[in-house]
């Protein structure tokens, strides 16, 4: 009599399956379930009350949620593009540096090493209307007014974008720099022989080679920025008057301050759509960019 044995591949994968189930699958299923309940942190019994799609209906008809959603898309779009442009510029300049490049690369990564909370506090001080660095500099140059950096709708959005870009541009710079290092020299030399201008070389050779790296950086950062929380929470808390309210400041207030975890989880699931859309878009672009330079799509 032979005992029925589990297939070998399954046994080998079992530890990974167990770990993934414990740390990813179970919390995911649990939070999905709780989004169909009126779960309140201070009333644990509410976890077992099923309310169907009530939370989702509430969110879908809530103007404040969609305003935060739209603002997050706007924030994401501006931040990603600015980081790309600055990161590309820095990487191209860094690539030309012949002496002390390693030290420079390390210095470049300093902003990434700070905790986002610290960066938030740093810029909250810099942009403070009364005692902040920027206004003091402006006033010492003769501008006799206190600009409300963290209050005015446009200035507040600018301030949090500035802080986010300051902290995370190095991610783009480093990934693009890696792309520049990996680039074959032959096409560049051939272009030179054929008499291409530097702009033509960049436009038709360098940039297509870099595009896969750019899209990978875009994908990673789009997921990060869509979850932007720490810096915004510290600098403006989503305010004033919801002018800088993003999805995660709204969600965290709903979940932790108002204790409405069920509703907050439902918001989380709706907002995942945003991340999925951006990821699909960038992966398609990535495949196209790879195909263009002759790599497998």
């Amino acid at each position: 009599m032979t005992r029925r044995r589990l297939p070998e591949w399954f046994v080998l994968l079992l530890p990974a399956i167990v770990v993934i189930a414990a740390v990813v699958l179970i919390p995911l299923v649990f939070s999905l379930y709780s989004s169909f309940t009126p779960y309140k942190l201070t009333r644990p019994a509410t976890l077992w009350k099923w309310v169907g799609t009530y939370n989702y209906e509430k969110i879908l008809s809530d103007g404040k949620f969609w305003a935060a959603f739209g603002r997050t898309v706007l924030f994401l779009t501006i931040v990603l593009n600015l980081e790309l442009l600055l990161g590309l510029g820095i990487a191209l300049m860094m690539n030309k540096v012949t002496w002390g490049q390693r030290s420079l690369r390390t210095i470049l990564m300093f902003p990434m090493m700070f905790s986002p909370i610290l960066v938030g506090f740093q810029f909250k001080f810099i942009f403070n209307d009364n005692i902040g660095l920027v206004n003091n500099v402006l006033q010492s140059m003769g501008y006799n007014a206190a600009l409300p950096w963290l209050v005015d709708g446009k200035l507040a959005m600018f301030s949090i974008i500035f802080a986010e870009v300051w902290m995370s541009t190095p991610v783009f710079a480093i990934l693009i720099l890696a792309g520049l290092f990996a680039m074959p020299r032959d096409p560049l030399e051939a272009a030179k022989v054929d008499g291409c201008t530097p702009i033509q070389t960049f436009r038709h050779i360098t940039l297509p080679f870099l595009m896969p790296f750019i899209y990978i950086a875009m994908t990673i950062r789009s997921l990060d920025v869509a979850r932007a929380y720490d810096i915004v929470q510290i600098m403006t808390g989503g305010g004033p008057a919801r002018r800088t309210e993003l999805l995660w400041t709204l969600m965290s207030r709903t979940g932790y301050v108002d204790s409405r975890m069920g509703l907050a989880n439902a918001m989380g699931y709706v907002s995942i759509i945003l991340s999925i859309l951006f990821t699909i878009y960038f992966f398609r672009k990535l495949s196209a960019a790879r195909a263009q330079i002759g790599m497998a799509g």
Binding site: T42, D152, P240
Partner: peptide, 23 residues
């Protein structure tokens, strides 16, 4: 009432909206 804190989270952005002139 337990909801006091939650009401304040609803009300304060609206007060701010009036103060800064959005409403």
């Amino acid at each position: 009432i337990p909801e006091w804190g939650e009401t304040t989270n609803i009300v304060f952005p609206e007060l701010q909206a009036a103060i800064v002139g959005d409403k």
